Amino acid sequence: HHGSGALAALHADGPHAGLPVTRSDARVLIFNDWEERKRSEPWLRLDMSDKAIFRRYPHLR
């Protein structure tokens, strides 16, 4: 199991509170979210491209 239990660094406060600090933090969040959702949506594709990251977390651009 590759990303399970990996912890992402999140901004503690300010405008980005609760959001990932780096792209690799964002990838951890996206992976964990996908892993949760694919139980009920097995067709869901995992997209951890930069484009997917920016779409979801525009502050990382």
Score class of each variant (00 low, 15 high):
Asp47Gly: 02
Glu36Gln: 09
Thr22Phe: 03
Pro20Glu: 08
Leu46Cys: 06
Asn32His: 12
Asp13Gly: 10
Leu29Ile: 07
His11Leu: 07
Arg39Thr: 11
Arg45Gly: 06
Asp50Arg: 06
Arg27His: 03
Ala8Leu: 09
Asn32Val: 10
Trp43Arg: 08
Asp50Lys: 07
Asp25Glu: 08
Val21Cys: 15
Trp34Met: 01
Leu19Asp: 05
Val28Lys: 11
Arg45Ala: 14
Gly3Phe: 11
Ala52Phe: 06
Arg56Leu: 13
Ile53Val: 14
Arg56Val: 12
Asn32Trp: 09
Leu46Gly: 00
Asp33Pro: 01
His16Ala: 06
Glu41Leu: 04
Leu10Pro: 05
Pro15Trp: 05
Asp33Ile: 14
Arg56Gln: 10
Pro20Trp: 02
Arg27Ala: 07
Ala52Glu: 15
Glu35Gly: 06
Ser49Trp: 01
Ser24Asn: 13
Asp13Phe: 08
Arg37Asp: 10
Ala9Trp: 08
His11Ala: 05
Trp43Ser: 08
Leu60Thr: 01
Ile30Phe: 13
Pro58Ile: 01
Ala9Cys: 15
Asp13Gln: 12
His2Cys: 14
Lys38Pro: 06
His1Gly: 14
His1Val: 13
Arg56Ala: 15
Ile53Gly: 00
Ile30Met: 08
Arg23Glu: 06
Leu60Arg: 00
Trp34His: 05
Pro20Tyr: 01
Leu19Ser: 03
Pro58Glu: 02
Ile30Thr: 02
Arg23Ala: 10
Ser24Val: 11
Leu19Cys: 07
Trp34Ile: 01
Asp47Ala: 02
Arg27Leu: 09
Leu60Met: 01
Tyr57Leu: 05
Thr22Arg: 08
Asp33Val: 04
Ser49Asp: 03
Ala52Leu: 05
Gly3Met: 13
Gly14Gln: 03
Gly14Glu: 03
Ser24Ala: 12
Leu46Lys: 01
Arg23Pro: 12
Leu29Asn: 05
Ser24Glu: 15
Val28Gly: 04
Ala26Val: 02
Asp47Thr: 01
Arg39Met: 09
Asp47His: 03
Arg39Cys: 13
Ala9Thr: 14
Val21Thr: 05
Ala26Gly: 02
Glu35Cys: 14
Asp25Gly: 03
Arg23Asn: 11
Ala8Lys: 06
Tyr57Pro: 15
Lys51Met: 11
Ala9Glu: 08
Asp33His: 08
His11Trp: 10
Ala8Thr: 05
Phe54Cys: 08
Asp13Thr: 10
Ala9Val: 14
Ser24Lys: 13
Ala17Phe: 11
Ala8His: 11
Pro15Tyr: 06
Ile30Lys: 01
Asp33Glu: 14
Lys51Val: 09
Trp43Leu: 11
Arg27Gln: 07
Thr22Ser: 08
Arg45Met: 09
Phe54Leu: 12
Asn32Asp: 09
Leu60Cys: 00
Leu46Val: 06
Tyr57Asn: 01
His2Asp: 08
Trp34Lys: 00
Leu7Arg: 12
Met48Pro: 06
